[in-house]
Amino acid sequence: MSKHEWPLYEVFIRSKSGLSHRHAGSVHAADDEMALTNARDTYTRRKEGVSIWVVRSDQIVASDPAETSAFFEPAEDKIYRHPTFYEIPDEVENL
């Protein structure tokens, strides 16, 4: 009998309310529901999260590493796009 690999899912976890989901890793799973429970059992055993997203890895559209120069280098010398000329009030968190 041939062994079919289960598809790969990428796991994103929100560590607490107010923060955004961050990539935590990946899991194998036979279906969406299993991906969610596998992600829960693999990545939130130590109270790492309050919310989980999973998405099939083959559904993610990713930038091409060969195109790095066209994609990212033009932003390198545009310092005026950074909001570094403002004073940030102390009350603002997570910026």
Partner: peptide, 11 residues
């Protein structure tokens, strides 16, 4: 049968 299932079962 799978690593993920392994973790779940042990937990």
């Amino acid at each position: 049968p799978e690593l993920e299932e392994e973790l779940a079962n042990a937990n």
